[in-house]
């Protein structure tokens, strides 16, 4: 029994890491008041660029860096449309997803079925990785440790620093931040770009580390789960980790539970069902205030608009 649990848990963390990376980025973007529905597009671009650069340079780190830059560039498109031009954020985000899916398919055609010469290797942590049973938890690759490390860092930054207050204020009441001399546009651009960086990383994790190959549409809706998890987490990095691993675990369990007669489709619905439950929960104004759902989410800011 313990063996079963440990084997599920050790698989859960890698299965949830792409979601965690993407969700952490989207949490920050939405905290600044910008909803980016283009996560799926940014992720898949990260996946294809990460694969291509790793393939060409035979260096996984370079691939991952390139993937995050690709994510940032994609996010800049959304930032320009939604922040500078104040276009409807839903439309701009959806366009970004479609763009990413299309372009990645085009770029990736030549890589279909190609094996990756190198992949991100596991990092065996000395001593700890030799422990019985829990040793398996210390044999992950660097990106997984990085994503876990980010959770407390991003929490601290968000709640305990000047810049965190600025970020949250911009998402809550941009006019208030503006009146205090904060550059609302710059903060939103940075937050959206950070979201793109993290989505790109998540994509690269999939194609360079988790299942090193390029398959068209390989994110398979992970970007949409990120959007759901962002709401589920109530814009909090720690809860984002919880949600990401919960769903990672569901994915792992799919294969184990199917023989028991629990259909995979049912399990696939779980993150969305949880999200709907959370939405019902936060439909109450008082609760929303206490939790801190960004009040200015999806509202473009313009100083001179009357």
């Amino acid at each position: 029994m313990i063996d079963f649990l440990v084997s599920v848990l050790t698989l859960t963390i890698p299965a949830g890491t792409a979601l965690l990376l993407g969700t952490l980025g989207e949490v920050y973007a939405e905290r600044s008041g910008v909803l980016n529905l283009g996560v799926e597009g940014m992720m898949i671009m990260g996946a294809v660029i990460g694969f291509a650069v790793t393939f060409a340079t035979k260096n996984a780190i370079l691939g991952i860096v390139a993937a995050s830059l690709a994510g940032v560039l994609m996010a800049l498109i959304h930032a320009y449309f939604s922040i500078t031009l104040r276009v409807n954020q839903v439309v701009s985000g959806l366009a970004l997803t479609m763009l990413g899916l299309g372009v990645s398919g085009l770029l990736g055609k030549q890589f279909i079925g190609m094996p990756l010469p190198v992949r991100l290797q596991p990092l065996n942590i000395p001593v700890l990785s030799n422990l019985p049973i829990i040793g398996e938890f210390f044999k992950y690759n660097a990106l997984i440790y990085f994503s876990i490390l980010l959770v407390p860092l991003l929490s601290f930054f968000l709640y305990k620093t000047n810049w965190g207050i600025v970020l949250r204020s911009v998402g809550e009441n941009p006019a208030a931040a503006d009146a205090m001399g904060v550059n609302v546009f710059l903060v939103r651009y940075l937050a959206v770009m950070f979201g793109g960086l993290m989505a790109g990383l998540g994509g690269a994790f999939l194609s360079v580390a988790y299942s090193p190959a390029w398959i068209e549409g390989m994110t398979a809706g992970a970007g949409w789960i990120v959007i759901a998890l962002t709401i589920f987490s109530l814009y909090d990095p720690t809860r984002a980790m919880l949600g990401a691993y919960l769903f990672g675990g569901v994915r792992v369990l799919q294969f184990r539970l199917q023989p028991l007669g629990i259909p995979a489709n049912l399990l696939n619905m779980l993150p969305f069902i949880m999200t709907i439950l959370v939405l019902v929960l936060i439909s109450e104004q008082a609760f929303r205030r206490r939790i801190g759902v960004p009040a200015a989410l999806m509202q473009p800011y313009s100083r001179e608009e009357k």
């Binding site: 000047n162 009441n173 205090m180 009040a295």
Partner: peptide, 26 residues
């Protein structure tokens, strides 16, 4: 301003220091 420019969900301290300070932490 007539319509207060305050972040409703934040504390008084957080509202007061919004946009001030030189370092990252305070």
């Amino acid at each position: 301003h007539q319509q207060f420019r305050l972040v409703q969900t934040h504390t008084v301290v957080e509202n007061v220091i919004l946009g001030t300070g030189n370092g990252v932490t305070f």
